[in-house]
């Protein structure tokens, strides 16, 4: 196990973490402000990726595609909020889980109907391919490095949005007391739609960016959705800071576990068994992490409010 491998895997973990943060920030905002648990968040991830793939294919410009993907995800998010989600705010969590589970079925099958079952092609533009040589002779793909950059930029932008702007002030006010800011004359249903669309746009961006790395297909949002839930539960539901920290933690633990656990078991087991045990344990690692954290802090690391 060399230093190069370690640096590379840490970067991979951070990259996974930043993409998880894009998903998790929307989820945690929606829960913090509206008290809604939204399983359909993975669908916005998928919508963003499909719209980006379609527009990139027809215009040839990845940036145009990204813009279209974010816009499409935001629009679909706003539409879903207006049609379905706003009926759920005062319902028990069970109803929210089921209604948004129904939305997943509708979005997944609808997408399969429109685009077919085979994955769509989306690859990074030529100016983002290739490798960068980092200090210590680590060669790392430029595109992945760019993803980390985008994640950092979005985190800073979200920080400013939430702590320095009027919209952010309303979001924070909504998190601490929904009824009161309505009573103070803030148009709360408009605020809800905006927050939901913002979360959807971030999920769409994540979907588009990761879609270019992996593949654009139906159901691509689901594994990420579950990871994002782990992230926000670890971080404390409703807390953006918790989401950022949780995302990086999950990204790093998952990536490093998958690489180093099989190596670790190889030290005292025959190689064939070691890779099996290591892989099985690595796949469970973040869930074990979550269970341990919740066993000690039932409300996550940075619980915002109940």
């Amino acid at each position: 196990m060399s230093v190069t491998l370690l640096i590379e895997q840490i970067l991979n973990g951070v990259q996974l973490g930043t993409m998880l943060f894009l998903m998790a920030s929307g989820l945690t905002l929606v829960f913090g402000v509206m008290g809604l648990i939204n399983l359909a968040h993975g669908s916005f991830y998928m919508v963003g990726a499909y719209a980006t793939a379609a527009v990139t294919a027809s215009t040839g410009s990845f940036l145009m595609g990204l813009a279209a993907g974010m816009t499409a995800a935001a629009l679909v998010g706003a539409l879903v909020e207006l049609l379905v989600i706003r009926r759920l705010y005062h319902r028990p969590h069970l109803d929210q889980v089921l209604a948004t589970f129904a939305l997943i079925l509708i979005f997944s099958e609808g997408t399969r109907w429109i685009f077919g079952s085979s994955p769509m092609r989306l690859s990074p533009p030529s100016w983002l391919t290739g490798f960068v040589t980092l200090p210590g002779d680590t060669r790392y793909p430029l595109y992945r490095l760019m993803l980390i950059g985008v994640g950092i930029v979005i985190s800073i932008a979200l920080y400013f949005l939430i702590s320095k702007t009027r919209l952010g002030m309303r979001i924070r006010a909504g998190e601490s007391d929904r009824e009161m800011i309505g009573a103070l004359g803030v148009n709360i249903s408009k605020l809800y739609t905006v927050v939901f669309a913002l979360g959807a746009a971030l999920a769409g961006l994540a979907g588009a960016l990761v879609g270019a790395l992996q593949s654009v297909q139906v159901g691509m949002g689901e594994p990420v959705l579950i990871l994002a839930f782990v992230v926000i539960v670890i971080g404390g539901i409703g807390s953006i800071k918790g989401a950022l920290l949780g995302a990086l933690l999950v990204g790093l633990v998952d990536t490093l576990g998958r690489v180093y656990l099989p190596i670790f078991f190889r030290a005292f087991m025959p190689p064939s068994e070691a890779s099996g045990v290591g892989a099985a344990l690595a796949a469970m690692l973040i869930y074990i992490l979550m269970a341990v954290i919740l066993a000690f802090k039932p409300k996550g690391l940075f619980a915002a409010h109940d």
Binding site: F31, I37, H93, V97, I226, F229, V230, V233, I237, M284, Y287, I288, M290, A291, L294, P298, K299, G300
Partner: peptide, 13 residues
């Protein structure tokens, strides 16, 4: 929500 999520997490495990 934490209960919903933690039961989900154990099942995923």
């Amino acid at each position: 929500v934490y209960f919903i999520m933690i039961t989900l997490a154990f099942a995923q495990m």
